[in-house]
Write a protein that binds this DNA or RNA. Structure first.
Lengths: 332, 332
DNA sequence: ATGAAAGCGCTAACAA
DNA sequence: TTGTTAGCGCTTTCAT
């Protein structure tokens, strides 16, 4: 690897001169710096960012931790984050927790050791608290939560899950689906909890009794929706509608319902959350909540960059709510 | 940030002793190293990886460059890569080219400057050659291409696009779809070219004339499939089947065909490539080629780790072919 | 078993 | 305008 010393030697200059020239320091006269840059190109010189960052005690890298990269929602958010921070000269470093607290901590620790300039995180389903983030606070590294958040004084970017679930449920009730089951996500996960709360409160507001056996918790995947719906369908009394914590779970519900020979929405209506591309093509097309993951990613990135840019700007208690909206299709 | 010097000072030891103790160097007796480690935990010490890597002239980071993170195929591959290299103690750094050569080069340069231990890349649609990778070769940093490859002496992990397209086309012909159009991807992109070649050769093998106006190039998105199919449908003579370069494009074809009031597969059959989750739920379900992105990611990661592990193992001309298989559904 | 010295590539403060 | 010196945190080699 070619270093500034190599360049300096070639030109009979001192390496500090080269260093300054490459960064267009006004000290160096144009002619000299042109010569230096020309040689740099010729010799295929690449600055050692490791050394630069090490010196500066901070890298131009943003850490991202998510449960799973290949979940459509997360990959879209990540993509949006990258687009924004790239323009600011940053690179992303990613770690997936695979829904375990342990890997989340390890990932965060690696990020910390790598001196990332900031961290963007959506927590695993096991995570209830994030003591491991104290080290970030101590080191002055800003942290932004998104989607799945945890109660802490860090910045957050979310949709109003409570409100969206409330509105969706109200819509179902107003469509005369007066008995509704809920296929919830894992307990503790903020989005599960908030969506479930919104659901329950909407029922209460309309004086509809909350049937506990019709509120089932599970995972975020199709199989979870399938299993839980099957259980609900085993009882004699069927709900008129099912509200799933996300579209994958709704897909599982479809399978269970259709396998049982029931029709959607005639026998049971189904609503999801997230608006996957898939939702539009399900049969019947799925009523769901559109989440704007791109806007979410952009908001995360911008918020973080702001915090990195000037440490005075306190983002700690900032909470950005990205608007979501109900998409009504034929499943309800 | 706490450093080994801080720890050393606290304990009245030398920082080199601390350094050794933390890495379980046999020089240090257990008692001392226990004291050191205890203090490290207490003081929330985190090794400065930047310094470590700088010293070592290489980071425990793998660079990944893809056109777009949020494309299902890529995010799945990335996820698989992360799972494998995580176990080996590496972290991934990602850059998206957004399908431009320029950003691809910039991304690669950043990776190089960051002294990544290796690079995994799927090139943009603009990329025809990769001279920028010479620097990696010179620096002894292994590179692995996947999916969209470029003719070079670097290692590659791909599906046999030619064969898969050939087999798919032959299947269509044997189903008596004796006139077939092809919705191709961008020219130059290896997968587009190979799939198209497979298509053409299968036609030739069965003495079916290749109608140039029925071979249309475009992008990889739904809109491209829609537009190109619309154009094909404008002519009087319709093909009996359409083979799309991927499932998103096939989706666009569905829309155009169905909008025209034609039925799939009765009037026109459609086949795709990739086997998105979506494909199963399209109406009718889409015949396509399953690509095993997880296996692909794992193969990339393992190949790269091998090359990093021992520099003798020459992977330069290695080409790993991941098996794909035809999935027949109701669209054909 | 522990300590001292040197150096990785780069930058910042100061000297010439 | 250019060069000198020092040091970032860590590891390696060699001395004690």
């Amino acid at each position: 690897m070619v270093t500034i010393k190599d360049l300096a030697q070639q030109l009979g200059l001192h390496h500090t001169t080269v260093s300054k020239a490459l960064r267009d320091h006004p000290d160096i006269k144009k002619e000299t710096s042109d010569r230096i840059k020309a040689l740099a190109r010729e010799m295929d010189y690449h600055p050692n960012l490791l050394a630069q960052n090490f010196k500066r005690c901070s890298s131009k890298t943003i850490g991202i931790i998510v449960p799973n990269i290949h979940v459509d929602f997360f990959s879209t958010v990540i993509s949006a984050i990258e687009d924004v921070i790239y323009d600011a000269g940053y690179t992303i470093m990613i770690s997936q927790s695979n829904e375990t607290y342990e890997r989340e901590v390890l990932g965060a620790t690696t990020m910390l050791s790598n001196q990332v300039a900031g961290l963007i995180i959506s927590v695993s389903k096991e995570t209830r608290e994030t003591p491991y983030l104290d080290s970030f606070r101590n080191a002055g590294i800003p942290v932004v939560f998104f989607d799945r958040v945890v109660d802490s004084q860090a910045a957050k970017v979310v949709v109003d899950d409570y409100r969206a679930a409330f509105d969706l449920t109200r819509y179902l009730i107003e469509r005369d689906y007066n008995s509704i089951a809920h296929l919830g996500g894992p307990e503790n996960v903020s989005v599960s909890v908030d969506r479930c709360r919104g659901f329950v409160d909407a029922l209460k507001e309309h004086d509809i009794p909350v049937t506990e056996t019709w509120i089932r918790r599970g995972g975020f995947h199709e199989a979870d929706g399938y299993e839980n719906t099957k259980i609900i369908l085993q009882n004699g009394l069927l709900p008129r509608a099912v509200f799933a914590v996300n579209d994958q779970v709704a897909l599982g519900a479809y399978r269970a319902i259709q396998k049982k020979g029931l029709r959607i929405p005639d026998d049971i209506a189904v609503a999801g959350f997230g608006n996957l591309q898939l939702a539009e093509y399900m049969v019947p097309p799925l009523t769901t909540v559109a989440q704007e993951p791109v806007k979410m990613g952009e908001a995360c990135a911008r918020l973080l960059l702001k915090a990195i840019g000037d440490s005075r700007s306190e983002i700690a208690d900032k909470k950005i709510i990205i608007p979501s909206h109900l998409i009504i299709r034929d499943s309800t």
